[in-house]
Write a protein that binds this DNA or RNA. Structure first.
Lengths: 135, 135
DNA sequence: TTTCACTTTAGAACAATTATAAACTAGTTT
DNA sequence: AAACTAGTTTATAATTGTTCTAAAGTGAAA
């Protein structure tokens, strides 16, 4: 993803392309593969890779803004920290609790044959499959 | 589940059956249906139902001890709080984010036809299906 | 270039959880 | 049954992840 696309992405989401947002967006979205992170890990990685230093609150603000805009998704992971994912399409995850690492599973690689219907007046919003790994 | 069984359950897990543990265990396990809770909700419910007042730390200690012993399971729910479940068999969940409520899905009510194999040297520990509900 | 709503920032505040250390107690030993 | 001891409970402090606040800064429109 090129810088121009990033500016477009931000503007089309109603997000003013500030220096911080552009740098964080470049870091997150200029990748071939899906990227999984927590705020803490992102903070550390940004501190290493970029010259500028962002306030922690800015990282929280930005990640939430990107999530609201649909550019990031949040993943269910047991524990206290929130995990985010640059893959916003419908998909699933392996989770390796040894390394606290998430691995994407393409939606097509899991086929569910039978599923219960939603309770009283509710609808199914989405189905997440979470596969815990062990050694 | 009778009181004697509860004493047995505790002792066989290497947990001394203290007054607090017995009361909390009775509250959690003397039920027909599965019970889902957070530490906060359990604390409130115990405060109402039982005459005695437990220290919050005791509730944390006890719930963790029961979880370690395999009498409770912890459920993946996005957000800051931990959810626990008295159903420790292999099963799945609906989650209603409107009410922050979990509903059990029997393992037999979900059939997965196709599943990817675990990555490099890892094995699958378990598969959790999480169905988010909307109105 | 001025203006102004939106952003960033440092630090305070908050919420969930874990750690601490003193008081207490179940169960064993005497 | 009294004493002992290791495990437990308790109130409180500490820690961790996250959100709030209010002052200073900045894109972009006029």
């Amino acid at each position: 993803m090129k810088k121009l696309d990033i500016l477009k992405k931000l503007r089309s989401s109603g997000l003013r392309p500030t220096k911080q947002r552009v740098e964080i967006a470049k870091f997150l979205f200029e990748r071939d593969k899906t990227f999984h992170f927590t705020i803490e890990s992102l903070d550390k990685l940004l501190a290493k890779k970029t010259s500028s230093k962002f306030a922690l609150a800015t990282i929280y603000n930005t990640v939430h803004a990107f999530k609201e805009a649909g550019h990031l998704s949040e993943v269910e992971v047991r524990g206290n920290k929130s995990y985010f994912d640059t893959n916003v399409s419908n998909h699933h995850h392996f989770y390796d609790s040894e390394t606290a690492e998430l691995i994407d599973i393409d939606a097509n690689d899991i086929v569910i044959q039978k599923i219960p219907k939603a309770p009283n007046g509710k609808k199914i919003k989405n189905v997440e499959v979470f596969i815990n790994l062990k050694n």
